[in-house]
Design a protein around this nucleic acid. Structure first.
Lengths: 189, 189
DNA sequence: GTATCCATGTAACCAGTTACATGATTGC
DNA sequence: GCAATCATGTAACTGGTTACATGGATAC
């Protein structure tokens, strides 16, 4: 079975939550769901066009003076059907590729300091992610109370928090382990 | 900057740990590092060939009677240099795409049971991963004591364990949350 | 007999990334 | 003046996946 084009469904799904332009979608990806999903313009605009041709979304051009025209996309009934079909299907297994772990494992001949630095960078990144997640959570909790699907947003954020915290803990442990080995090696010299 | 071909370095790095055939590399990927890295034949054989042409690895064909011939690859000095250059470089940021979280977030019009089922599958998968990690760990700990880089293997495994445990905890919490909402909705009917 | 393991490869495809192009408006 | 934001797109590229092809050996 060929792999399905996830971008199609991501766009369809985001438009189902709220109509908007390609630019809006990109913003949502970057600002609210970047901790688990990303899209880029090179994919967004062509796919939007394709979805329109297939009748899964429709377009309305909005003109506001002193601004570039915006193409606002709305999901159609047909689009909603295809989206829900996909949503009901089991999650496809996707091959994992964690470059940090690969590098760590292969670093038998690399100075420990270099490896430790990578772990410290990772640690900082995951901490930034936690801050960012706290912001998104705050924005959601103080926003419109009755927002449909709020609990789903919070569940997704919680996943990010669990994973990022686990990463930070692992970084700490691993850095400590490497430093200890380093100290022991200096001793035995 | 164009993205670098990670497969090149993964193969180079695995051959640096131990010479072997394309088949061997695939086995190592599937049996020992599948929790954070994967490769497939469609990429392994062509890249191996390319690495050989570039002089980063060299080949020796092994004939054993009653068996297909094996092409054993060895990393060269030049290959080791290129590998270490890459290893010293910072980890490249790669865009995240977690289909489960995307589906979860977009499932505003999907029956809760369906979502819960996905979470239960995820939970089972992560538990299997934990079992698998325990096996790999056991295999390593009871293997040759002085194995170079053993601590790096254990660190990588530990990462997998931290992340998988965090996932399981999140699944439990999220399933509980969804069930509770379901109960409340039934009540108010 | 039949499934699994051993072993190597090629061809077709495409999803996703990067780089490029354009240009107005707003805030510092 | 300069950077950032708003806004839409195209072209080139390629890494990675899937499917296909082949065939002997071994274990049940």
């Amino acid at each position: 079975m060929p792999r399905v084009n996830k971008t199609r469904y991501a766009l369809l799904g985001l438009l189902n939550l709220k109509p908007g332009s390609g630019y809006d979608i990109k913003k949502t990806c970057d600002k609210s769901i970047s901790f688990f999903w990303s899209e880029n313009y090179g994919q967004i605009y062509p796919v939007l066009k394709q979805l329109e041709e297939e009748g899964l979304v429709c377009k309305e051009t909005e003109y506001t003076e002193g601004r570039p025209a915006r193409n606002i996309y709305f999901i159609t009934e047909q689009g909603r059907e295809e989206l829900n079909d996909w949503l009901m299907q089991p999650v496809e297994a996707t091959p994992l590729r964690m470059e940090l772990l690969l590098k760590l494992l292969l670093s038998v001949d690399i100075p420990v300091e270099n490896t430790i630095e990578k772990l410290e960078i990772k640690r900082r990144e995951e901490n930034s992610k936690l801050e960012y997640l706290a912001e998104v959570e705050e924005r959601l909790r103080t926003g419109p109370r009755d927002r449909k699907g709020l609990h789903l947003w919070l569940a997704a954020i919680s996943s990010g928090q669990h994973l990022a915290s686990a990463s930070v803990r692992w970084c700490d442990e691993t850095i400590a382990m490497l430093r200890q080995r380093q100290a022991q090696q200096n001793e035995s010299e």
